[in-house]
Design a protein around this nucleic acid. Structure first.
Length: 793
DNA sequence: TGGATCAGTCTTTTT
DNA sequence: GACTGATCCA
């Protein structure tokens, strides 16, 4: 599997090669290029990094392991292209996956070469660049240039309508399923006419393809696209109009792609079309960090790069500047168990540092308690909370950890979670603004016509729909007609008329007001703000806060139109919070981040590797899970702490669990097994813990809200216990290898009777190292660790 | 129409 | 256990 190491310097830098390139072959450009080797920004790079920066011509794949200076190479490369006169800023295409990454790249390029970098109009996400291109040629793909971009929920609503229109039972064939099917096709670059024969029948007994076509038709009617279309329609545009493709091929002299391992087929095709002419495509990525396969990312894209782009140079960055040797070695050995990889060996000159710890907890509550204690101990030693992260496999794991942190009074922040613009209140507010901006926006209108409740329910909407469909007009127009007839009962009729009048008035406001004033007015006059003010639930205050934030953030934009445009693509909550907090997030959300100390709870079979990933994708699924483990470990600079629990509640039921196979993948020399103080009689949480509410941090997190909900049932309003007594400090006793089955053979034998403190008595069916399969008399068959059962006489 | 209750579901989530 | 969607009843 390990490809031979390519010599980066097989391709000597020859700026003169550019002579055949029309515009950039000017004397001045070449003169500037000639001084490149002395340019100061190159001096801090190691030889591989420098090679990656200087191999400007032809296809280049930079395999950049975790912490090897990937971003630095990318930004320096851009700076180099500009500084040496090879390209003007606007002739460089630089694509990332997230807006955050794009923003950071722009900032870093600017810091190297100054404000010239502001001229990089083609630095952005695949989707934002796709949007830009489509707006220019919208009419060629059957759209108007002011098309709207649909979010996931609008998409779903539309699909529901399409399914119903086809007379298909939406319960049997849920819209979600169709959405993921169509998404999958779009990810693979397939339009409605290009679906492989065997797959068109995948939905509603053979009507999948038909529904896809119907959905696309509805989108066109609404002058709308979904995220997938932003790429797919570009592909269609370029295929049907080679002259336009040529324009872009000529424009983009150099192309750079970040996180190449995450590209899907559509993105690959998109890049390949553009790169065909000049072939100056530089992709940076790490096959070992490909964790989005389930979302359509094709690891194959990176594995086959050399094959797809002939003459490609592959440069490996293997010098890690982030983690200590033990952590790096543990991560490297773990990932080496994967078969589908190009192969890299990360190395560091850093000290060995602390070993990776593995701690077994009794149950998930206990696990959360241990983590909490370790965090407190670190904090007491002046370790910054901002440098601590807890990375979980699934969000459901967060609950117990949050509860524990709240109890202890440890400030934390949940990263990821619902995006700002995905929150219901934000989407509602935006829907109002969309209708104000564009009354024909049916999906937006439908969303808010009865929010807040106005008595315009399903029955009324149905009437509007019928008329709209019959007359082929937008809903708003249908409504205008209907209120003049007596089709509706008097009450809904006058309510609807009032609403239409309001929208008419609001649309005119933008002539005299700024868009944030308009928004403010609309939200107040519509009764929307009122609705949340009257809401007594715990999160209403947070929602109002979010609405304020929305209105505030609008001020930066020239008009409503451009704000809405921005919002459909970007919109992240801008956290202006300086309090030091522990970060809690999923492993997926952690990619690209780093922390001094990383806690990795839940390393149990079934949870991590996730059973569903295994069931659905087999070995590929397992390998992706292992890459996720690798990502988790490599987030840590100085301390990585793995945990597993022997009992975990899954869907509300307690299950006995066994340690993850990834624990056994780790090299013994780099890990240390920590014996958890296994005092089960405490049962995890004491009454005192439960009674301690907490105030002052993270009031928007679910944990806080749960604490609030809890507080109303307790009686000690506001008193915050820092800690419920040090009955069990974090005892770091070096013990035998509880977690590994490589240790001494278990003293248990099949057929023997054992007693488990949670499951009661049972009979051993099989022994595998220290893992026992036990048929419990009451609880059924479970896998348990031998250290958690006692032999019965 | 809207609240209340019940059954069924349950990874990961840029754009 | 907690959330969603559907169905029932006032």
């Amino acid at each position: 599997m390990v490809a031979p190491m390519n010599q980066p310097d097989t391709r000597p830098e020859k700026p003169d090669d550019l002579a055949h390139e029309p515009a950039s072959g000017s004397l001045s450009a070449r003169a500037r290029a000639a001084v490149a080797p002395q340019l100061p920004y190159l001096s801090g790079l190691n030889p591989e990094q420098r090679a990656a920066v200087e191999a400007t011509e032809g296809p280049v794949l930079v395999l950049a392991g975790a912490g090897t200076g990937k971003t630095r190479v990318l930004t320096t490369r851009i700076a180099h292209l500009i500084a040496t006169g090879r390209a003007q800023p606007h002739q460089i295409l630089a694509v990332t996956f997230t807006n955050k990454a794009a923003r950071e790249m722009r900032e870093r390029v600017t810091s190297v070469i100054g404000p010239v970098a502001e001229g990089m109009q083609w630095l952005g996400t695949f989707h934002s660049i796709g949007t830009k291109i489509l707006r220019r040629h919208a009419e060629l793909v059957g759209l108007r240039s002011d098309f709207t971009i649909l979010g996931t929920d609008d998409q779903l609503r539309l699909m529901k309508q399409v399914i119903e229109a086809e007379g298909i039972d939406e319960k049997r064939w849920p819209a979600r399923q169709l959405a993921s099917l169509i998404d999958g096709w779009k990810n693979r670059g397939l339009g409605p006419n290009q679906i492989p024969a065997g797959e068109a029948g995948a939905f509603a007994s053979g009507r999948g393809g038909k529904l896809y076509t119907a959905y696309q038709d509805r989108l066109k009617t609404l002058n709308a696209v979904d995220f997938g279309d932003l790429l797919l329609e570009c592909l269609r545009l370029w295929r049907e109009h080679p002259d336009i493709l040529e324009q872009y091929q000529n424009r983009f002299r150099y192309m750079l792609v970040d996180e190449y391992q995450d590209t899907n087929v559509a993105q690959y095709l998109w890049l390949r079309l553009l790169a065909q002419a000049r072939k100056n495509l530089c992709c940076v990525g790490d096959d070992d960090q490909s964790i989005y396969g389930w979302r359509g990312a094709e690891v194959d894209n990176i594995l086959r790069f050399e094959h797809d782009f002939s003459g490609a140079v592959v440069i490996r960055l293997e010098r890690n500047y982030r983690s200590t040797a033990h952590i790096l070695s543990a991560a490297s050995v773990l990932i080496s168990k994967n078969q589908s990889r190009l192969g890299k060996t990360l190395r560091t000159e850093d000290e060995p540092g602390e070993k990776v710890t593995i701690t077994g907890a009794w149950d998930s509550e206990d696990e959360a308690r241990l983590i909490g204690e370790e965090i407190e101990a670190l904090h007491a030693k002046k370790h910054s909370l901002a440098e601590i992260a807890i990375l979980v496999r699934i969000s459901a794991q967060m609950r117990e950890i949050e509860d524990r942190l709240v109890t202890l009074g440890v400030p934390y922040r949940v990263i990821g979670g619902p995006r700002f613009y995905e929150r219901a209140e934000i989407r509602d507010a935006l829907a109002y603004l969309r209708v104000v901006n564009q009354p024909a926006d049916d999906l937006a209108f439908e969303r808010i016509v009865n929010v807040p409740k106005r008595g315009l329910g399903d029955a009324t909407i149905q009437v509007l729909h019928n008329h709209a469909r019959a007359a082929r007009v937008p809903l708003v127009e249908a409504a205008r007609f209907i209120v003049e007839t007596d089709e509706l009962k008097p009450k809904p009729r006058s309510t609807l008329r009032d609403l239409l009048t309001s929208f008419g008035r609001w649309s005119k406001l933008s002539e005299t007001m700024t868009q944030s004033e308009v928004a403010q007015t609309v939200l107040e006059e519509s009764g929307y703000t009122d609705m949340w003010q009257k809401d007594k639930s715990a999160d209403a205050a947070g929602r109002l806060e979010n609405l304020k934030e929305l209105v505030r953030s609008m001020e930066e934009f020239p008009d409503l139109q451009s704000f809405l445009e921005h919002v459909s693509l970007v919109m992240e909550a801008n956290e202006s919070d300086t309090t030091e907090r522990v970060s809690l997030m999923t492993l997926h959300a952690a990619k690209g981040l780093e922390f001094d100390t990383v806690f990795l709870p839940g390393w149990e079979e079934g949870l991590f590797p996730n059973q569903r990933a295994l069931d659905e994708s087999g070995r590929a699924g397992l390998e992706e899970e292992r890459r996720l483990a690798h990502v988790g470990l490599t987030r840590a600079r100085r301390r990585a702490k793995i945990f597993f629990a022997s009992n975990r509640r899954i869907h509300g039921l307690w299950n006995s669990t066994i340690p993850s196979r990834f624990v056994d993948d780790l090299p013994e020399a780099d890990v240390e097994v920590v014996e958890a103080p296994a005092n089960f009689s405490y049962g995890g949480t004491s009454r005192f813990d439960r009674m301690a509410p907490f105030s002052g941090s993270s009031y928007q997190t679910p944990g806080w809200q749960r604490a609030q909900a809890h507080r109303s049932t307790t009686d000690d309003g506001g008193y915050s216990a820092r800690r419920s007594g040090d009955r069990r400090g974090p005892m770091m006793i070096e013990g035998e290898l509880v977690a590994k089955s490589t240790g001494a053979a278990s003293s248990f034998k099949a057929g023997g009777r054992v007693l488990h403190s949670k499951f009661g008595p049972g009979t051993i069916e099989a022994v595998d190292g220290n893992k026992l399969t036990v048929e419990f008399d009451k609880a059924g068959r479970k896998m348990v660790l031998d250290s958690f059962v006692d032999a019965m006489g």
